[in-house]
Design a protein around this nucleic acid. Structure first.
Length: 480
RNA sequence: GGCCUUAUCGUCUAACGGUUAGGACAUCGGCUUUUCAAGCCGGUAAUCCGGGUUCGAUUCCCGGUAGGGUCACCA
């Protein structure tokens, strides 16, 4: 029985605290968040900390930090509580015991009498025979009473083919091979994911379960558990995987899936990341690609989530990030850029030059490291070949620079900017009939000392009248 | 190996039986009267293969092929 869709939408993101938060995980969170917000529903953060052996200290804080960075605020969660607290599975053990007892009473759960080694032997044998391993083929006839020292297993009541509807993939089905007597409660007293999430989703009244494709083959197990417990199940929305950038393997930590919190370190904007991630496996149709958070919430639709894996694409992320940088106000831009600059380069005039050259703020570090911005406070070293435009003669070179000096000297200091410098230099070009490069190149090099730099007009404006003229004279003297 | 699932330019995708198969990123070329960057304009580039259904298939069905997932006291 599917959940009635008239009820309030409640979604959840349920990570396990076993390490950092990678980009694939946060996309799942994003979709669950968008769907909840679109429907004026509730987005819950639940921590699935039932595997004490693999738990990594600090993960919970790290996960919460990553979600907050991207602006995915939860309405209920371990830190803020809520009507169905607690939100950590390790604190919900009583619930699992309660439902375990119900199953035991119904004769649908039993203690596993085998040791782990014995089960391993069964598994190996199945492997050798190239058959899938099914515990239920070894189901004991007279299992001992469950005292908690052994795992508690679910006794699948009905071995059959299951068919169900998925909001993304449509009608799905799986044969009886997918059903098995899986473990409900481990010998350490903690429930498995397979059991715990079903109970929690029930108690937290989750309406839509959104999770990765890797869970699809386990769905029949959950279905048989819902049946055994005679409880209503939520709607399922299965998400296609995100694939690694070069291979076609599912993006995992090993294949370069990065920690979400690496992105702020590289100077990406959270809105850009959200936009990028939203479009990896989903799109609203149409040709608009830049969507704010509110716009995403407005247009997001589960039915438009794609079916096939999408490859991670750094280029596209960079492009989207640049689009968001362009949308920043002057003050925001200044603050952001200054964060990445050393004291001596925190100059407002450099902002426009920097902005058009970066796709993420971390690129500024590269600019600083390679000396691209040093021209601002360091006198350039001259080099005759580089100062010379193509085959122009030394005399012509000196003349052009002298002309530039005298023409630029006539501009009032207050009016000395890229426009007036441009006019001034253009006048020389039209008066003397030289090629524009014959004067623009030497002036640019005299000011920057760089092979690649902004144009001479903006350079002049940044340096100011006095410094501009001084550098031009230095170049002239260098040639003597 | 069993089971599940997917398949449009290099990449992300649009087209819910009829389009010159559209857009974006990347790439290439041009313009922006010097370089680089940015910007603008333009080009190259795709329906995995084979059957069927249909007047007509990217679209529906079947079979291949290829990719992905899964077969834990992990989630």
């Amino acid at each position: 029985m599917d959940k009635n869709t008239n009820t309030k939408v409640i979604t959840r993101f349920a990570p396990s605290p076993t390490g950092f938060m990678h980009v694939g995980g946060i996309r799942t969170a994003l979709y669950a968040y968008l769907w909840a917000k679109k429907n004026n529903g509730t987005f819950i953060l639940r921590i699935e900390d039932t595997d004490k052996a693999r738990e990594v200290p600090g993960s919970i804080e790290h996960i919460m930090k990553a979600l907050k960075w991207m602006g995915l605020d939860w309405d209920e969660g371990p830190d803020i509580g809520g009507p169905n607290a607690p939100y950590k599975q390790s604190e919900r053990l009583e619930s699992y015991k309660k439902y375990a007892q119900i199953l035991i009473k119904k004769g649908l759960a039993y203690a596993d009498p085998y040791t782990e080694e014995e089960v391993e032997v069964f598994r190996k044998k199945a492997d050798e025979e190239k058959r899938p391993f099914l515990y239920r083929e070894h189901r004991p006839d007279n299992p001992p009473i469950w005292d908690g020292s052994k795992p508690l297993r679910f006794k699948v009541p009905l071995i059959k083919r299951y068919e169900w509807n998925d909001l993304v993939f449509g009608n799905l089905s799986a044969g009886p091979e997918a059903l098995d007597d899986f473990i409900l409660i481990k010998s350490d007293g903690y429930p498995t994911y397979n059991f715990a999430h079903v109970i929690d989703d029930l108690e937290m009244q989750i309406t839509h379960v959104m999770r990765g494709q890797e869970f699809i083959s386990s769905v029949p197990k959950y279905l048989s558990l819902y049946d055994a417990l005679e409880i209503e199940r939520p709607l399922f929305a299965t998400l296609p995987p995100i694939m690694g950038k070069d291979g076609n393997k599912k993006l995992g930590k090993r294949d370069g899936a990065k920690d979400v919190l690496d992105y702020p370190k590289e100077g990406y904007l959270p809105e850009a990341m959200m936009n990028f991630l939203a479009f990896l496996g989903w799109n609203p149709g149409g040709e608009k690609e830049i969507y704010t958070k509110d716009e995403l919430i407005n247009v997001f639709d589960i039915s438009r989530i794609g079916h096939s894996g999408a490859q991670w694409n750094d280029d596209k992320l960079d492009w989207i990030n640049k689009e968001y940088i362009k949308k920043l106000s002057t003050n925001e831009l200044k603050d952001k850029i200054f964060e990445w600059l050393p004291e001596e380069l925190k100059i407002e005039k450099l902002i426009s030059v920097i902005t058009e050259r970066i796709s993420k703020f971390g690129d500024i570090k590269t600019m600083v490291d390679t000396g691209e911005l040093d021209f601002y406070y360091k006198k350039p070293n001259y080099n005759k070949d580089k100062l010379t435009y193509k085959n122009s003669t030394e005399t012509a070179l000196s003349n052009n620079l002298n002309n530039a000096v005298s023409s630029l000297s006539e501009i009032d200091e207050i009016n000395f900017n890229k426009e007036t410098v441009k006019d001034s230099l253009n006048k020389i070009i039209s008066a003397t009939g030289i090629k524009s490069g014959e004067i623009l190149h030497p002036v640019r090099f005299a000011l920057s000392g760089l092979d690649k730099s902004p144009d001479p007009f903006i350079l002049s404006e940044i340096l100011g009248k006095n410094e501009t003229i001084e550098r031009l004279n230095n170049a002239i003297n260098f040639l003597k």
